[in-house]
Computed example of a mutant assay.
Amino acid sequence: MARLPAAARPSGLLSAAVTTTSRHGSTPATRGMTSRLEISSASSSTAGQLVLWTDYNPTWVGLDGVSFPV
């Protein structure tokens, strides 16, 4: 999905629940779904990579409340 700059990468694997919506988020069943976001640690081969685990194609991901020490 994205990659954080080197200065902003977590020291360990970060996993967080985030709010997402699907491409057709106009029904109650597809609005405000929860997905898992993982950010690779600074020492991994995929350092700083953001991966969203979901079974649909969200049009947005809410990062409110996602924080970690650098």
Rank of each mutant, 00 (worst) to 15 (best):
T59F: 10
P28K: 07
T21F: 00
D55R: 11
D64M: 09
R36A: 07
A8D: 12
G12V: 12
G12K: 08
T19S: 11
I39D: 01
T34M: 02
S45E: 10
S45L: 10
P5C: 05
D64E: 15
S43D: 11
P28W: 05
W53L: 08
T19E: 12
A8C: 09
G12E: 12
S41E: 10
G32R: 08
L37D: 01
V51C: 14
V70D: 09
P28V: 06
A16N: 00
V51S: 15
A7H: 09
A47C: 11
S26Q: 08
W53E: 11
R3V: 15
V18T: 03
A29S: 09
V51K: 14
V66A: 05
A8V: 02
G12N: 07
S41Q: 09
H24F: 12
T21Q: 15
S22A: 13
T34N: 04
H24Q: 13
G12Q: 08
T30N: 13
S41F: 00
I39T: 07
Q49H: 09
S35K: 00
A6V: 15
L52W: 04
S45D: 14
L52H: 04
R3W: 02
N57Q: 15
R23I: 13
P69T: 10
W60D: 12
G25Q: 10
M33L: 15
Y56E: 13
V61T: 14
P58I: 03
H24P: 02
L63G: 02
S43W: 10
A17T: 10
T59L: 13
D64Q: 14
R3N: 15
L14N: 00
M1N: 07
A42K: 09
R31E: 06
P58T: 15
R36L: 10
W60F: 14
A47G: 04
W53I: 08
I39V: 14
